[in-house]
């Protein structure tokens, strides 16, 4: 067991973790932030994407112990109180989700894309979503949502 402390969605937390505990399990099982999903066991689906120290990472591909001292934002912490983040707003407007299971990861990945590049082309969006799988939408409206979010973030 290692004691770790980090910030998640603006809150300070600390926890005793086993060496083999994955960050995603800590977030879901211990902190009960179940918006971050687990869709695979090979780090391929992106359902578990979170923001860690400003970068988008797959939380299933990290050990909890590696998060010591980090600043984490999950889907639950993206909105500013009642005000949705532009990407969340855009996914709602453009019907960028169906079953919603991939959605938290898609939204976090999209936030990352737009952070690095506020004006992405279709190709750049597609490239940025390479690590995220969706079985429902055919991605068409997800790509539309990212473009819409880019517009929303400009105003």
């Amino acid at each position: 067991m290692t004691k770790i402390a980090f910030t998640i969605n603006g809150k300070q937390v600390s926890s005793d973790v086993e060496g083999r505990t994955l960050l995603v399990d800590l977030i879901r099982d211990e902190l009960k932030l179940t918006g971050t999903h687990v869709g695979c066991d090979t780090s391929q689906c992106g359902c578990c994407t979170i923001q860690l120290d400003g970068d988008m990472v797959k939380s299933c591909a990290m050990l909890a112990a590696q998060a010591d001292g980090a600043n984490i934002v999950t889907i639950e912490g993206l909105a500013d109180g009642d005000k949705l983040h532009a990407v969340q707003q855009a996914f709602t407007e453009c019907h960028g989700l169906q079953c919603g299971f991939c959605t938290p990861g898609m939204i976090m990945a999209s936030v990352g894309i737009l952070k690095a590049n506020p004006n992405p082309s279709d190709e750049e969006i597609v490239k940025g979503l390479e690590g995220n799988l969706c079985r429902c939408t055919g991605y068409v409206n997800i790509i539309k949502s990212v473009k819409r979010a880019a517009e929303l973030m400009k105003v």
């Binding site: 918006g35 971050t36 949705l84 919603g100």
Partner: peptide, 14 residues
């Protein structure tokens, strides 16, 4: 609305 904020409740969330 719930689903884009991470407040969905899928089977493993219970």
């Amino acid at each position: 609305m719930r689903l884009i904020q991470g407040h969905g409740r899928y089977a493993s969330d219970w």
